[in-house]
């Protein structure tokens, strides 16, 4: 029995060491070469209209998806979209299961620290969602201070609420946060403005919800593996794509032209 205990201890320590050693190694070789070599750019997304969503034939479209396709073309490779569990995005990148995440991602400090990010290309805001019936009461930041918020764990919304020092519960996704409000288990939630536009109001499962205050404004960017040279490559592409007017034209297709940031 004693031997077994010692064995277990050694094993736990060994796992600890292994985990400690597995901090993402800085890529010595070029990520650009790696992607061009295998001939495909694997883009991590979630179903997030109007940035990434499926058309009737099941093809991924949206402002982000179309731009990712154009970027892959610019690199001379195929584009592959992979719907992922958003919490795992950094592991997905570091384990090379993905090459980038391009999904209306807010550039927070955490994101900038853990990924190699492109320049910002789109503006966004975090908005408070409340039942329509009570919307009148909550039209400025001070009025919502006593509400019990639901936010997506690790999202820009959570950071915004925490910065204000308001009480909040972190849930698995923005859609779970909405469900909390609809079910009455939370007074309000904080989600992306672009997402709120698509998911609440008439014709959805949440016709009785609406968004009111914007807590902060923020910017969207594209994330790559830490140290990747693809981020710089994308910035070059953005510059060209904006300069010839393609980016604005695409933005108009999806109704986000007012949010586009000049490159």
């Amino acid at each position: 029995m004693k031997k077994l205990t010692v064995l277990m201890l050694i094993f736990v320590l060994a796992i600890g060491c292994l985990t400690a050693c597995s901090q993402p190694a800085t890529e010595a070789e070029s990520d650009l070469a790696y992607v061009q070599d295998k001939g495909a750019l694997v883009v991590g997304i979630t179903d997030f209209a109007p940035m990434d969503y499926k058309d009737e034939s099941g093809k991924w479209i949206g402002f982000d998806a179309d731009m990712a396709t154009a970027f892959a073309e610019y690199l001379g490779v195929e584009v592959e979209f992979m719907e992922i569990e958003w919490d795992n995005k950094i592991m997905e990148l570091d384990s090379k299961a993905l090459d980038c995440v391009w999904n209306g991602m807010t550039l927070t400090d955490e994101v900038l620290n853990s990924m190699e990010c492109s320049n910002a290309y789109c503006d966004n805001a975090q908005v408070v969602v409340v039942p329509v019936a009570e919307a009148d009461k909550y039209q400025d930041i001070d009025s919502v201070s006593a509400l019990n918020f639901a936010v997506e764990s690790g999202s820009a919304g959570e950071i915004a609420v925490n910065d204000l020092g308001y009480p909040c519960t972190a849930v698995q996704s923005q859609s779970s946060a909405l469900m909390e409000v609809a079910a009455g288990t939370a007074d309000a939630c904080v989600i992306d403005l672009l997402m709120a536009g698509a998911m609440i109001g008439e014709g959805t499962s949440y016709p009785d919800l609406t968004h009111t205050v914007a807590l902060n404004s923020e910017k969207y960017g594209v994330g790559f593996r830490k140290g990747s040279d693809l981020a710089a490559e994308l910035n070059k592409f953005f510059a060209e794509y904006y300069a010839d007017g393609s980016m604005l034209e695409l933005a108009k297709t999806y109704g986000v032209q007012e949010s586009v940031i000049a490159q």
Partner: peptide, 18 residues
Amino acid sequence: IYYGPGLILGNNWWGNGS
């Protein structure tokens, strides 16, 4: 099992895609 090979060994032997 899925992310380990890529994260620890630097080689995602499961390949990309579903």
